[in-house]
Nucleic acid binder design. Structure first.
Length: 278
DNA sequence: AAGAGACCCTGGATGC
DNA sequence: TGCATCCAGGGTCTCT
């Protein structure tokens, strides 16, 4: 499940392979992968275009074209991209092919068909409602204090809300809450200033480390060359149900929050909030 | 407005 | 062994 570190890693590897290469034509093997515009229009607009700039926003990949339109891609759960010689055989889950003029194909592959591409005049048509980048200065304790005040939803759910902060998914939400020692079910409005400062720091630290390790590979995530990340070796709680907490040894617990599996240390992440021993 | 839940989708895991 | 059911989760939508 590609989240911010995975999307950034993919984009860094993809960019040099596609920048400034003319797109000769497009083949939609599974047309619903194209969210907008209508697919014939998408293909017509892409024809002859070049990607002149590559950016990431949250979990979205942004490609600015030489006509100043933007092609935007979201991998959702199982999306992958790769660039191969056009003579290479297709894979069963290839959904969209960008045929480059130099004889290679930029292929979008997605087993579960959740991934989407967009072609728009302005990126805000797709990403306009996203919250700040978690690694930017805009994501700080003051910002999060304001957004969490008086809200009753569990903090885990808000971390996954892309309008709150963009790019965090289930893995990094659990890992950040563990690092900040905050129970995932804590009501947003009950968090203290100190806890929120700790959470902001934890989110940033977890993402920085995951970026350095080129993401987390559990099942599907692959870099464009097929290689995997290594942050799965650094996971403290995610999908470690029943295993000992790395710091206190208590068995990691799994619950469901907002319909998502959630992992935490029941001894160190207390629902009652910070205690004042002594 | 905020929060909860359904839905999309496939294939591997689990249950009987 | 074989079939049915469950589960994974990012984003969008509906309902209350």
């Amino acid at each position: 499940m590609p989240e911010l570190p995975e999307v950034q890693t993919i984009l860094d590897a993809l960019a040099p392979l596609i920048l400034d290469r003319e797109i000769h034509s497009v083949t939609a093997l599974w047309p619903p992968v194209i969210d907008r515009p209508e697919r014939m229009l998408f293909a017509a607009w892409m024809q002859g275009r070049r990607v002149v700039e590559v950016n990431r926003r949250g979990k979205y990949m942004l490609f600015r074209l030489d006509d100043d339109r933007w092609m935007i891609m979201h991998l959702r759960m199982t999306g992958k991209v790769r660039v191969v010689d056009a003579s290479q055989p297709l894979r069963p889950h290839d959904r969209l092919l960008f045929h480059l003029l130099d004889g290679r194909d930029w292929r979008f592959e997605d087993q579960r068909k959740f991934g989407r591409v967009y072609l728009v005049e302005s990126p805000d048509e797709v990403i306009g409602k996203l919250g700040p980048e978690p690694l930017s200065n805009a994501f700080d304790a003051d910002y999060l204090m304001r957004k969490l005040a008086r809200r009753t939803a569990p903090i885990k759910s808000l971390l996954l809300d892309q309008r709150m902060v963009a790019g965090i998914g289930n893995i990094y939400a659990d890992e950040s809450l563990f690092r900040a020692r905050i129970h995932p079910l804590r009501a947003c409005g009950s968090l203290t200033r100190t806890e929120i400062e700790g959470l902001v720091g934890a989110v940033k630290a977890v993402l920085v480390q995951a970026l350095a390790e080129m993401g987390t590979t559990l099942q599907d995530y692959r870099r464009p060359d097929g290689s995997i990340g290594s942050f799965q070796n650094s996971l403290q709680v995610f999908r470690r149900t029943g295993e000992p907490c790395p710091t206190c040894g208590a068995p990691i617990q799994r619950i469901v929050v907002g319909g998502r599996s959630t992992h935490f240390c029941p001894r160190e992440q207390l629902l009652t909030g910070p205690t004042h021993p002594g």
